[in-house]
Nucleic acid binder design. Structure first.
Lengths: 218, 218
DNA sequence: TTCAATTTTTAAATGAATCTAAAATTATTA
DNA sequence: TAATAATTTTAGATTCATTTAAAAATTGAA
């Protein structure tokens, strides 16, 4: 059984790996966790001993098969709770993260099984991220950052890459939501920003950064 | 902000006080918590420093006003989660305790406010115990242990005093549930057991111990 | 390709929460 | 009421997650 800290570090390593990073570094991990390199280094040793990560001194870490499975179970719980908070308790999609960070550590397989049933087996969390099944499997359609698609491309807003940093409040404010139909009208060479139309109605200009953080699928 | 341990010890002191015990002793507390007297003694000092209990060396502890308020908030959360588990997630009333022990420590006032709304402001948990309101107020009708009422008394089963030790499974097995109508037919002098009739139908014999653990109201 | 900068690890401390063992206090009973 | 028993506290260790500071390893740049 993993401790709270072990679960959080393991999840962080998994998320950082998913973001392309291979061999997650001690410093990056520490930064992500809001701790110091020494703490991260200790934890890497511990997780390595439990064979949840592949790690060698000075070489960075990658989740092992069993570590990945464990991380995905925590993520599954996190995302199911987020669905619960939004759909049943009327939380806004930008209010759920911290509470779900706590709820994801509750230990009870029956609870998660029943919660999943109660929510009618959702496949996506409120930010559009896929919910792994009880075996850690994720199935989803290919998704592309808006910024990588050319003018003329039309698709649905299916997720945001990183929901942090008040990005969701910003989307709320400008009227972008999950499931919105979005057409790319133009790409501004000057700054990489995009002109888009939402639901065939409203024209918006999105910065390069915003475009990189909004995921579309056809 | 209290730590997990502090919350659990405080709750235990409150519960023991409620059970008549005044000046909760170090040993009793340790036993209740599954720890050793030395640990309980340390914690008493800490809670006393935070003025959540009144405590003097060798004199036992009682919750202070602010400690009581805090304990009741934890109990409120525990019981609301129990209602959720039974009413929404179809848990049996004997399966909820351990999960609620974890859920009660989630820190989010908004979560509890919304959960309370979602459950339609329940007044009792699945074992019939009253749910304190957001100010820590408890309102309920007087309740009596079955064993203290004489033959002839009729009332409703409204709660169990201590849901531990497989008592709930036992009640399920013999057909006693919350809200059942119960009439005391006879008291057996020999062993203090009671002959009762449930819902004007089924006759049962309950041990002295069972009778002390079942609470009735008129 | 060597040496300086950066990153990572190790070592030594700290604060919780726990334990065992011993000392102090209170309670009991002969 | 004085000795013994029981309870409670203190003292000293242990484990976990963290820190700071110093040492070791890696990287990269002149």
């Amino acid at each position: 059984m993993l401790s709270l800290s072990e679960e959080n570090y393991l999840k962080a390593i998994y998320h950082l790996s998913e973001q392309g990073k291979t061999n997650v570094s001690t410093n990056l991990l520490a930064e992500h966790m809001g701790t110091k390199a020494a703490s991260a280094s200790d934890m890497l040793k511990k997780l390595s001993q439990k064979e949840l990560i592949d790690y060698g001194r000075y070489q960075g870490a990658n989740v092992s098969e069993s570590g990945k499975k464990m991380a995905l179970q925590i993520i599954r719980k996190h995302r199911l709770w987020e669905v619960f908070l939004v759909e049943k308790l009327k939380f806004n999609w930008n209010e759920v993260h911290e509470v779900a960070e706590q709820l994801e550590h509750i230990k009870s397989p029956l609870l998660i099984k029943r919660l999943d049933e109660f929510l009618n087996f959702p496949k996506k969390d409120p930010h559009g991220s896929p919910i792994p099944d009880e075996h850690g499997e994720i199935k989803e359609k290919p998704q592309f950052p808006l910024a990588e698609k050319p003018p003329g491309f039309e698709g649905l807003v299916v997720a945001v890459k990183d929901p942090g940093n008040h990005f969701l409040e910003y989307l709320d404010k400008i009227g972008i939501y999950l499931g919105a139909k979005l057409k790319i009208v133009d790409r501004i060479t000057f700054d990489g920003s995009s002109e888009v139309i939402i639901d065939n109605k409203k024209t918006l200009f999105l910065s390069k950064e915003a475009g990189a953080n909004i995921l579309l699928s056809e």
